[in-house]
Design a protein around this nucleic acid. Structure first.
Length: 477
DNA sequence: GTGCACTTGCT
DNA sequence: GCAAGTGCA
């Protein structure tokens, strides 16, 4: 009989958990689980209080579900990654652990942390890392030249090929083992913890939501996903971000409901699959190009852009006080709920970068500090896409018009009115340009005038990008 | 080399 | 129509 320690990190579930399953392979072995909170590290990574609260809530349900299969959960708190190796060593000595099991995390700091742990523990403790967080391990989906893709569409083609030939099945939760496990309440982390009713904690609510979405909503996803007032998105991102749900579970569930969706690129199921594929793409990218984890843009020359350093402009964007209703409503949705509709994320990101000419990294960090589904790879990928600094050739001269976007995706202003009650009197026709209505009527409204004129800002941004791209053209002749 | 294609737009 | 390059097969 051996003692196995399962170290939970971004995989707070017992179903389809590769490391947990491996640790439980032999019924006679003793299995204990461990989670280590790292408040200092979270702070450095701008983790949102809603996400920390969500982790805490899900850890509590994880403790229960682990107890139900006879596995006790230890929860420790260590300030940062530096203290983890010694903390785990101590646990291993206390419980006479023979082997450590964990699912790999791919960002740079996490990989370094795991290396340090393995070095410290070996050879007394066998360490087993598993690829579990993605459909396929990073650097396993490659071009003909053996390199990671830089363009999404060919990556997706290769991904589909892999899915059809070598995807792992979903793993069931391990069978119950050993005797009863007593649980005591997990003390709250030494970190701000917020919670929100919109995302109930636990694997069961997550799986229910997944099943329901794939059964009832996904067919309409292509048609309605861009309408924030409709809210036809899956709302599964918070669960995926901390691993309450696995992406394999999502894919298999989708396949169970729409067996041939890969043959129907127009279907809602395919559109949603695209989102899972984007997640996969961005995670693979982050591993292939470490600079992406180091605050660097993918396209080098964009480092030469002279960003607007304004603290005030940035703050107004953060607070939803820009005078562009769709932008402000979106920011207030995020500030109040910890979540923002995907279409709106693109709109507000484009606005910060292309209208205010503010460094995308400030927006990226702000998003992380507010989002319940904050995920380094997806968030960075999304921001670099919006800022035109990323892999895909989203030409920088393609700039969202916030008013046009608002009219297209929230025509009657249903979403805007939800978050900007001060615009209650503004007729639908003017809901995207309330200041114009106000002037016309001679009625003041309690809402800011636009922080910038879009047409003017657009030109300025084009110039700033063009100058950065061709610096030698300046001052010559 | 050679041709095709490139998330979600805008004036 | 833009506008321009280059990743990928």
């Amino acid at each position: 009989m051996a003692t196995h320690l399962v170290w939970f990190r971004n995989d707070l579930r017992i179903t389809d958990n590769t490391a947990l399953t491996a640790a439980c392979q032999h019924p006679s072995d003793r299995v204990i689980a461990l989670y280590i909170a790292t408040p200092q590290q979270w702070h450095q990574h701008d983790m949102a209080a809603v996400q920390a609260g969500f982790i805490y809530a899900n850890l509590c349900t994880l403790q229960q579900s682990l107890a139900s299969i006879g596995i006790p959960l230890l929860v420790l708190e260590v300030n940062d990654f530096g203290g983890i190796a010694s903390a785990i060593t101590q646990v291993c000595q206390q419980h006479q652990v023979d082997a450590l099991f964990y699912n790999r995390q791919y960002p740079l700091n996490e990989r370094r942390r795991d290396q340090a742990v393995e070095q410290t523990l070996s050879p007394e403790v066998d360490c087993h890392g598993f690829d579990d967080a993605l459909l396929f391990p990073p650097m396993s989906i490659l071009t003909g030249k053996g390199e990671m893709y830089q363009i999404y569409t060919p990556f997706r083609h290769a991904l589909i090929h892999h899915l059809q030939t070598k995807l792992q099945p979903v793993l069931p939760a391990p069978k119950q083992r050993g005797g009863e496990v007593n649980t005591t309440d997990i003390p709250p982390f030494n970190y701000p913890l917020d919670s929100h009713d919109a995302f109930p904690a636990g694997e069961q609510p997550a799986l229910q939501r997944l099943r329901r979405f794939c059964r009832e909503n996904v067919m309409d996803y292509e048609r309605y996903r861009d309408i924030p007032a409709q809210d036809m998105t899956s709302r599964l991102s918070p669960y995926l971000a901390i691993g309450v749900l696995s992406v394999r579970q999502c894919y298999h569930r989708l396949l169970a409901e729409s067996a041939d969706f890969l043959l129907q690129p127009q279907s809602g199921a395919f559109a949603w699959f695209n989102e899972l594929a984007w997640r996969e793409f961005y995670h693979h990218l982050l591993v292939a190009w470490p600079k992406l984890s180091m605050n660097k843009p993918f396209i080098g020359w964009t480092e030469r852009i002279h960003w607007n350093p304004s603290h005030d402009d940035f703050q107004r964007w953060c607070d939803g006080e820009t005078g562009y209703p769709i932008v402000d409503a979106a920011m207030r949705q995020m500030n109040h709920t910890g979540w923002m509709h995907n279409r709106l994320r693109m709109i507000v990101a484009s606005f910060l970068v292309k209208d205010l000419l503010i460094d995308w990294r400030r927006g990226e960090h702000y998003f992380m500090s507010r989002l319940i589904d904050g995920d380094l790879a997806a968030n960075n990928g999304g921001w670099q896409w919006a800022a035109s600094t990323g892999t895909d050739a989203a030409p920088y001269f393609r700039i969202f018009n916030p008013t046009t976007q608002g009219k297209r995706f929230d025509p009657q202003g249903h979403f805007i009115r939800q978050w900007l009650p001060e615009l209650g009197d503004v007729p639908d026709k003017w809901i995207h340009t309330p200041h114009q209505w106000s002037e016309k009527q001679g009625k003041p409204i309690d809402y800011p005038t636009p922080i910038v004129d879009h047409a003017t800002a657009r030109i300025a941004t084009l110039v700033a990008f063009e100058q950065a791209r061709k610096p030698q053209a300046i001052g010559e002749d």
